[in-house]
């Protein structure tokens, strides 16, 4: 990298511009990733936190919510080979009121003795987010729909479809929305066919939360576009840069530089720029994310910061490599004579 380092310093204005672009794209990608993860948490954390490995829906277009399943289905699944537990869960969105304040909540109803959550009749377990919005204390009365119950505060913070969760009691013979399965070595497809249900793994089941599928899809698409834009910008920059210095490359080749040496030099240069740009951008995104605090749902962790940064560096290097390839085509003969 003898020549590459010196070029970086000599043309620092031009390279600075590229670093700036990479930095800004990295900030955008970092913020978007944190936000995507944060919003996903607000949509799915309650479902993911249920602990089972599969979710049974009433049919192929069954969703969380509704009362599509009954006692018979629950028993059929509980009696299926390989099913360790089949827990009933009623899901609905509603409003909760307490002491004059009200909030939109996701109501998760479970029967007595459920492994998902212990809720007694006449009781409502209020998750931290819901307690916060309602301002309720332990033992206070909470009205959900037209049923009044006694609040028991929970320390867990669960969200479903952007609403904080409250847990209520599901009467023994009531219909419900989904079954949460814990299985080992179970022929799910066969049981589905026999019972007439549609079962998905928990990670696929979250796609049936309408707000999650729509939101997550567009955020992931945006991030994909940013990745592509970044690779294209880096590729375009190095295309122009390589053409600009093709005279120097011809001279170096005539002086005896091997093509491998020149490719390593140029790719090393691209790597240095990408690493500086993404490192600064990631730092800035982390700072902004931390400053946002609780104002927006934002997840600040290795997966949301370092993974996109690594993808940006990787794709940038691919873009640069495609551009730098033209180093091989430069004819050292053009260094001779006055035709430069």
């Amino acid at each position: 990298m003898f020549v590459a380092w010196r070029e970086l310093w000599f043309a620092r204005g031009r390279f600075g511009l590229l670093v700036g672009v990479v930095l800004l794209i990295t900030v955008l990608v970092g913020l978007l990733s944190g936000l995507t993860a944060g919003l996903a948490g607000r949509n799915t954390s309650a479902v993911v936190g249920l602990g089972g490995d599969h979710v049974v829906f009433s049919g192929v277009d069954g969703v969380f919510g509704g009362t599509g399943l009954d006692e018979g289905v629950a028993r059929a699944w509980a009696g299926t080979a390989g099913v360790e537990r089949a827990e009933r869960l009623g899901v609905s969105l509603g409003r909760a009121e307490a002491g004059g304040r009200s909030a939109g909540v996701a109501v998760f109803a479970v029967p007595s003795g459920s492994a998902l959550r212990g809720v007694e009749p006449g009781q409502v377990v209020v998750s931290a987010g819901a307690a916060d919005e309602l301002g309720v204390k332990d033992g206070q009365r909470v009205t959900i729909g037209d049923v009044e119950s006694t609040a028991r505060l929970s320390t867990s913070d669960e969200y479903f479809s952007h609403a904080p969760v409250v847990w209520t009691h599901l009467p023994a013979d009531a219909r419900f929305s989904v079954l949460i399965l814990s299985t080992s070595d179970c022929d799910i497809a066969k049981a589905d066919a026999a019972i007439g249900t549609s079962t998905e793994s928990t990670s696929d089941a979250v796609d049936r939360i309408g707000s999650f599928a729509a939101e997550n899809g567009s955020l992931v698409l945006m991030r994909g576009f940013l990745f592509a834009i970044s690779a294209l910008v880096v590729g375009a920059f190095f295309t122009v840069w390589t053409i600009q210095r093709s005279g120097d490359i011809a001279v170096l080749k005539a002086l005896g530089a091997s093509t491998g040496y020149l490719l390593r030099d140029a790719l090393g240069q691209a790597a240095v720029l990408l690493l500086i740009g993404t490192a600064l951008g990631t730092g800035l995104a982390a700072t902004i994310g931390a400053a946002l605090g609780d104002a927006v749902p934002f997840v600040l962790d290795l997966a949301t910061l370092l993974v996109p940064a690594a993808v940006l560096v990787g794709l940038g290097l691919v873009g640069a490599a495609l551009a730098i390839r033209r180093v091989t085509a430069v004819d050292p003969l053009t260094a001779l004579g006055s035709a430069r």
Partner: peptide, 30 residues
């Protein structure tokens, strides 16, 4: 390329020096 590096010196019509390098570095890069 190795033969050019080690056994052949070329003085170009245009000096063809590398713009980013100092005079001393033009030699050291060789």
């Amino acid at each position: 390329a190795a033969l050019r590096r080690r056994s052949i010196g070329i003085v170009f019509q245009q000096p063809n020096l590398l713009p980013a390098l100092t005079a001393a570095e033009q030699l050291r890069v060789m």
